[in-house]
Amino acid sequence: MSEALLSLHYHVSPDDFQTAGEASSDVKNKLKKMGFPPEIVRKVAISMYEGEINMVIHAYGGEITVDIGMDEVRAVLKDKGPGIQDIGKAMEAGYSTASEKVRSMGFGAGMGLPNMKKYSDEMKIDTEIGVGTTVTLVVRLA
């Protein structure tokens, strides 16, 4: 990866649905202002939002860093949540362990991770039970 043009850092609060999505929204606005193509902005916004909301719903919030480079946008979403038992299962469309409470808010279709896969060019999940999960998302410009 070439040198980052801009590095951003966000704190994601646990269980706060009023502010959930603000990091993704801020990144989207910055990319737009920097003149990135709309399709790239959309890919970053969608994949990053799903990761951000998962940190709110399934973990206890966490930290996001985003490096915007000449040829790629790289987001690393790190939480200290419960970890993911079975990544293969979690990646399946429709698989969700979301609670009734968050389902009533419209979450829990089990499409977040599939969306992240679909809208990123590279996705990596590092997870350890009881320790946390780090998701790396890369969207390439070329």
Partner: peptide
């Protein structure tokens, strides 16, 4: 659509 992550993946701009 009423499910947010489906809308996220599919709602046309």
């Amino acid at each position: 659509c009423d499910l947010l992550s489906i809308a996220m993946g599919k709602a046309p701009a």
